[in-house]
Simulated assay, not measured.
Amino acid sequence: MIVSGGEALVDLVPAESTPDLLAPRLGGGPYNVALAAARLGVPTGFLSRISTDRFGDALVERLRASNVDLALVQRGEQPTTLAVVALEEDSSARYSFYTEGTADRLVADPGPLPEAVTTLCVGTLGMVLEPGAGVYEAVLRREAERGVLTALDPNIRADMIADAGTYRARFLSWLPHVRLLKVSVDDAEWLAAGAGVDAAVKAWLEAGVTAVVLTRGAEGLSACTAAGEVASVPTVPVEVVDTIGAGDTVQGALLAWLEQRGVRDLTTLGAADWAEALHYAAAAAAVTVSRSGAEPPTADELAPGV
C-alpha cells in the first residue's frame, strides 16, 4: 500500500464561465497524490488531519469515492485550509494560502505505519507548517528506517516559507531518508539557491537519494540517478485548461507504476524502465491538465493512451 501524508485543502479557482468568480476545488499536493495513485488502481491511504466542516466532509467523501483508505485520516473541528488560485497567461497557477489555525496543521503522529505500507510519500505544506511538519518528518525518518520506499515532493510555496535558509537546510536533512525525489525545475532552482540545477541534483543523489525525477513543464520529464540522466520523455500533447495538480499526478502515477510492479529498490530499474514509468506519469498528467482543477484520471481513462 502507498500512503501519502500531508495537507488536504480547498483551492478557490477562477470559474470557467465567469473568471472573476472563484469556485471551490478539493485539493492539496499530498491529497492529490493519494487520489492519483488510488484512481490508477493501487491500494492507497492518506495520512492527514481533516476538518469536520463542510469542506472537510467533502474532502473525505472524495477520498472514499476514489477508493483511498481512510484508516490514517484524523478529524478536527478547526477549519479547512484555503488556497486562492490565480491563473497566469500560460495556464500555470499562483497560490495564496490561508492556513492559520487550520485542522491539517495539528495532525498527530500515528506511530509506526501498518505493515502493509510499502511506500510513503510526503511533501508540500505538510513539510512546512508546524507542528504538523515535525510529525511528517518523524514519520518519514521512521518508515525509511524500516525499509519503506520513501518519496518526497517539496512542491515549494515560497510565500509560506518564513526562512528560506532554514528550510533548505532542513530539506537537506531529509535526503538521507528519501529514495525518490520528485521536483519541478523551478523548485529545484529555488532549492539550489544559485548553485545550478545539475549541481544540486548531483549533490542530492550523493546525500542519499536514489533517483531524482525532474518535471520540466512543457519540456517533459527526466529521471536522474547516480549514472546521470538515464531517461527523458516529452509531455503528451493536449489542450491545457490549467496545470493545477499536474505535478501531484506525476508523483501519484510514478508511485502507482512502481507499486504495480512491486518495485521496492529503485536501483533495480534500468533506463528503459524509467522511460516507461515517466511516459506513464506524463500520460496521466496530460489528462489532469486537460481539466479544470486537480482531477487525476482513472486507470480506465489512461489505458487507451498508454
Rank of each mutant, 00 (worst) to 15 (best):
P304Q: 14
W174Y: 15
E115L: 13
G208D: 02
R216P: 00
I244Y: 06
A227G: 01
L214P: 01
D187L: 11
E206C: 00
V185L: 10
Y280N: 00
S292G: 11
V107P: 10
V287A: 05
E88D: 15
S292Y: 12
T52C: 08
E259W: 13
T249G: 02
C224T: 14
G245C: 11
P110N: 12
E16P: 15
S96P: 02
E189D: 11
M1D: 02
L82Q: 03
A218D: 13
P30C: 06
G293T: 14
V185I: 04
E206S: 06
P19H: 09
G217H: 06
I50N: 04
V148I: 14
G147C: 09
T215N: 04
V122Q: 10
G134C: 05
A277M: 00
T267L: 06
D90E: 12
V233M: 02
G305W: 10
G134E: 14
G147S: 09
T102N: 08
N155Q: 03
S222G: 14
A93I: 09
R157C: 06
Q74K: 07
S173Y: 07
L266A: 07
A8G: 15
A246L: 00
V263H: 12
T166A: 15
T243I: 13
S92M: 06
S17K: 13
L12I: 10
A195Q: 12
V185S: 09
A144L: 08
G305S: 15
A277G: 11
V236M: 07
V139N: 11
G217C: 01
C224S: 15
